[in-house]
Amino acid sequence: MKRNLIDLSMFVAGLLLLVAVSSCSTSSGNTAGAEPAAAEVVTIASGNATTQNEYTAALEGKVNVEIRPQVEGYLEKVYVDEGAYVKAGQPLFKINDHPFREQLNNAKASLNAAEAAMANAQLEVDKLTPLVQNKVVSDVQLRAAQASYRVAKANAEQARATVGAAQINLGYTLISAPVSGYIGRLPKKQGALVSRADVEALTQLSDVHEVYAYFSLSENDFISFKAQYPGNSLEEKLKNLPPVSLLLADNNLYGETGKIDMIDGQFDKNTGAITLRAIFPNAQGLIRSGNTGKVRLSRTHESAILVPQSATVEIQDKVFVFAVDKGNKVSKQPIAVVGKSGNNYLVSEGLKAGDRIVYNGLDHLQEGAVIKPEAPKAAAQLSMKN
């Protein structure tokens, strides 16, 4: 019995050793006799690509006018409603004009008196002139009469200017639209007392048949922006810029393209950014002043390295691909992503044309595993060779 127990112990020990060796062989990856796992592999090729960058923009009408009173008085009539579209010259507000009409009448009366005094002085000059020529009276009287005429003439001119000022003030009682556009809020209602010293305007009028989109570029983005387009000056570069697109607040693409027409003269010291302006047509009035959106700029990259996003994995804010060497062994390779073009990453470092990477099934790969390369089942969305 003792011998049988010894034989059984040796048998169990040998069995455990066999299991351990088998387990080690399995965990070591590909064994000498195992078939390598199949994986889709593509070869990187360089080509031209277009990336799109988006910048937050504030939208304003081409003309934004604050409508303010030029004279003080009670608001007698309000001819428009909030949000209404008005044409240039259309009446908006009427200030009580009775005091200003009386001022005008008073100024006209003063003018009539001044003109009468001037005419009387002219008669005195005309009467004394022949008498002086015939030496009937002294020329001193004539010179005094001529001086009186000049005084009367100056008084008449002053009275005429007063009439003009009164007419201007009377005209200010009817406030009309300086441009065509949309009326904003109306904080002052009929019967309110208004004056030039009011902090709040009567309303704001926005001409939005064209809208301006103001957005900012950082210093690095601006340097790259300038280097991309031909021209010896910023003015020449502006002429060569392609059209830009506008994303509205709901992320829908605006139906019209715009044109960058202005670059600010200096960088903002607080933000380190420079402001650009793009102009968009807005014939339908879909955009109003105060809207927000994003200006989308397209940029062309020549001889760019593109990698499908599906062929990458992100670990701790870094992007990796599984590179395949000549022996079909895979290794995790970090890449530097500088932009996106469609479903592809634009890569500046980590890969070059001719390198092979695993296209799909990255979750099942292990570092150093040997694979069997296969062509992708679906065509990659960039210029690559299988």
Rank of each mutant, 00 (worst) to 15 (best):
A88K: 09
T56K: 05
Q103F: 09
T43I: 06
F93Y: 12
V21T: 13
Q70R: 15
C24I: 10
L17Y: 03
A119F: 11
Q103A: 15
E54K: 12
V42G: 11
I67T: 01
A119E: 13
V65C: 00
S23H: 06
E54N: 11
A37K: 11
G61R: 00
A20R: 09
G89H: 09
I95Q: 02
A49Y: 02
Y79F: 14
K108Q: 14
L15N: 08
E35G: 05
T43W: 04
I95V: 01
F93N: 05
Y74M: 12
L59Q: 06
N112Y: 12
L75A: 04
G61Q: 00
E82V: 03
A38S: 15
A107L: 07
F93C: 05
A39L: 01
L15S: 13
F93D: 01
D97L: 08
G14H: 03
A109G: 04
A57D: 02
S27L: 13
F93T: 02
M118R: 14
A45E: 10
N30Y: 00
V71N: 02
E72S: 15
I95A: 07
F100G: 07
E72W: 02
R68L: 02
G47Y: 03
Y74I: 13
S25Q: 12
V63M: 07
K127C: 03
A116G: 06
Q70N: 14
A13Q: 11
S28G: 15
N48P: 09
G83D: 03
D126W: 04
E124T: 13
L18W: 06
N64H: 02
L59I: 14
G29F: 11
F93S: 01
E124A: 15
A58S: 13
C24L: 12
A32W: 12
E54D: 11
Q52T: 09
C24Q: 11
T51H: 02
A113W: 06
R101Y: 07
V19S: 10
V86A: 02
A114W: 00
H98R: 08
A49D: 07
Y79C: 02
E124P: 01
T50L: 05
I44K: 06
Q70L: 14
T43S: 10
Q70M: 15
A121Y: 00
N120A: 15
A121M: 04
A38C: 10
A84L: 02
I44Q: 05
N30K: 08
E72H: 03
A84K: 00
I95M: 07
A38K: 15
L111C: 07
M118E: 15
V21I: 13
L92M: 14
N30G: 02
E40H: 00
A39G: 04
N112A: 15
A20L: 12
E40S: 05
E40N: 04
K94N: 07
L111H: 06
V71T: 03
V21N: 11
Q103N: 12
T43K: 11
N64K: 03
H98A: 14
M118W: 13
A117M: 01
E66A: 08
S46V: 13
G89P: 03
V42Q: 06
T50Q: 13
R101A: 12
E102N: 08
I67S: 01
Y79S: 05
G33H: 11
Q52W: 04
R68G: 00
L92P: 08
N53A: 12
N48W: 08
Y79E: 06
